[in-house]
Amino acid sequence: MKARFSLLLGAVSAALVAFALTSPHVVAADKADPVADAKAFQNFFFQKFPNVKHEDFVNGPYSMNDDMKRQWQEKEEFPPYEFALDAGKEMFATPFKNGKTYADCFPNGGIGIRQNYPYFDEKEGKVVTLELALNRCREANGEAPYSYVKDEMASLTAYMAFTSRGKPMDIKIPDDPRALAAFENGKRYFYTRRGQMNFSCAGCHVQSPGERIRAETLAPALGILNAMPIYRSEWSGMGTTSRRFVTCNSQTRAVPLEPQADEYRDVEYFLSYVANGLPISGPGARP
């Protein structure tokens, strides 16, 4: 029994060594080039929709349809996310039990920094999103983490996005093979078909933006996260980037990951990086 176990262990570790030896070659063969990817990604949308102003893509379906855009602009006078924004502002200013605040956890006191998230943390070797950083801030200060998908988390990110409105998305990929791997992994997740419907993220949001599924207009992938978090009439409430990913997966009958799973963090990294230069527009409102 023991011999068999060690044999198995040997086989597994041999496989792991073989994988470790071959995988860098695979990456090298692919020649990951995020700069070229972002350029190609943006040009695809600019050419597909020559009449849409570049900074307008961050307004999702409203950039695709003039009637919808007019209705939305009227709605923006009393936006449905306003209550969340006000709540977020108050929460942000309220000290934790230990007297510290969110401002103590972020550069520039957390104001006007949303465009730098997610970032690659070289100490951790992983992507850190704004939602993740907010919960880590809470936990570091002895507070319980919030649900990632709505309510308080949506309010806090709504306020932080609001302080960054108009600032161009500015995601960096440091000179670290792990950062490049995270970008490539997010890209792979984005283009891979999955679930009973056999959809990829790209099928709807690259191949078909502007098209309708029944009455709903599909948003372009370019700048889709710049508007987060969003008030969705369909949800009758606010939702975060995490909520968007989880519901996209479940609506297409794929198995959703846990919010802030590594793959979701990577796909957020990929999607945000290819939207570099486009303004933050969150919090947003969507049908």
């Binding site: 009973q196 056999n198 099928g203």
Partner: peptide
Amino acid sequence: ETKRNPQTMMPPFGRNRI
């Protein structure tokens, strides 16, 4: 439909037992 057109959006209703 992916058999005829690999790029199609159409779900494989039979293959995936929808």
